[in-house]
Amino acid sequence: MNETVFITGATSGIGKATAELFANHKFKLILCGRRQERLVHLKEQLGALTTVHTLNFDVRDKDAVKKAIDSLPEEFSKISILINNAGNAHGLDTIQEGSITDWDAMLDINVKGLLYVSKAIIPKMITQNKGHIINIGSTAGKEVYPRGNVYCASKHAVDAINQGMRIDLNQHGIRVGALNPGLVETEFSQVRFKGDDERAENVYKGFQALKPEDIADIILFTVTRPYHVNIADLVVMPTAQASSTIVNKTL
């Protein structure tokens, strides 16, 4: 593959699984994350399969985002596919008990971080008159559940940005779509519950949750469709899940 894929949040979960799968299919990879040691390990692991470049920055820092993307060597300058995967949930409190620090983190990462990265890369795609942007949303962007308030708001924002982005970039021949997963067993719940491993593990007990590899497989399918096909908005849940609050734990 000559196509270059830019993945945020590449050091764990869906981002890491996507990087591994795309490496096996010989895409050139630009892998981004906050944890430099994980990026180094990932480059060593996947460098035997494909060409890999890493960028160490926090999507919340707009100056760092721009500086990192502007630093890309010529070999990686033509980005074909952007996967806006970086995102987090912090806390599970009622609106009246919520932490402003948690709110800031979710809005800064899930919304503003996605915008900062997209703002830096979209002009490159416009110049090429071609590109594909995959925004990783959530079923939380399609409904609101108890104590989800600000996290759900951030993912509803991703849903709206995805739609607006698709409209604005239509004239440039750029494909834009969102993938909205339900329960995926990753570090997500450990972050949400701030290191409370027992509480995090209980989220996925009693049923078969989605795996990061399941989502990576769907992303690969999406970007490898003929160019006249754009998967604009896709929701995927484990069979045991009917909604954010209804999960069959007898399967």
Rank of each mutant, 00 (worst) to 15 (best):
residue 153 A to V: 15
residue 100 I to R: 00
residue 88 N to T: 15
residue 233 D to Y: 03
residue 186 T to C: 09
residue 40 V to H: 01
residue 193 F to V: 06
residue 14 I to W: 09
residue 145 Y to G: 01
residue 47 G to R: 09
residue 3 E to F: 00
residue 102 D to T: 07
residue 240 A to P: 06
residue 50 T to M: 11
residue 110 N to E: 02
residue 156 H to S: 05
residue 24 N to M: 12
residue 190 Q to K: 13
residue 25 H to F: 11
residue 29 L to E: 00
residue 60 R to P: 05
residue 35 R to E: 08
residue 232 A to M: 04
residue 119 K to S: 11
residue 3 E to P: 03
residue 110 N to K: 07
residue 193 F to M: 12
residue 141 G to M: 06
residue 102 D to F: 14
residue 230 N to T: 15
residue 194 K to Q: 14
residue 40 V to E: 12
residue 37 E to C: 08
residue 216 A to L: 12
residue 16 K to S: 08
residue 206 G to R: 11
residue 174 I to G: 02
residue 51 T to H: 10
residue 146 P to L: 10
residue 223 V to A: 00
residue 159 D to M: 13
residue 57 F to I: 02
residue 87 G to T: 11
residue 16 K to E: 15
residue 77 S to M: 07
residue 214 D to M: 12
residue 9 G to I: 00
residue 166 R to K: 12
residue 50 T to G: 08
residue 2 N to K: 15
residue 34 R to P: 07
residue 25 H to T: 09
residue 164 G to F: 08
residue 193 F to G: 10
residue 106 M to H: 08
residue 174 I to L: 01
residue 12 S to Y: 06
residue 4 T to Q: 01
residue 68 A to W: 07
residue 136 I to R: 06
residue 181 P to C: 08
residue 186 T to D: 08
residue 201 E to W: 01
residue 112 K to N: 14
residue 148 G to D: 05
residue 144 V to W: 02
residue 141 G to I: 06
residue 31 L to M: 12
residue 175 R to Q: 09
residue 90 H to Q: 14
residue 41 H to Y: 08
residue 3 E to A: 09
residue 20 E to I: 11
residue 221 F to W: 13
residue 110 N to F: 04
residue 161 I to D: 05
residue 171 Q to H: 04
residue 162 N to I: 02
residue 224 T to Y: 00
residue 236 V to D: 04
residue 37 E to W: 05
residue 68 A to I: 09
residue 16 K to H: 12
residue 108 D to I: 13
residue 182 G to S: 12
residue 209 A to M: 04
residue 237 M to G: 01
residue 24 N to T: 13
residue 192 R to P: 05
residue 61 D to K: 03
residue 52 V to W: 13
residue 8 T to M: 07
residue 156 H to P: 09
residue 72 L to Q: 05
residue 142 K to V: 08
residue 109 I to A: 01
residue 174 I to P: 01
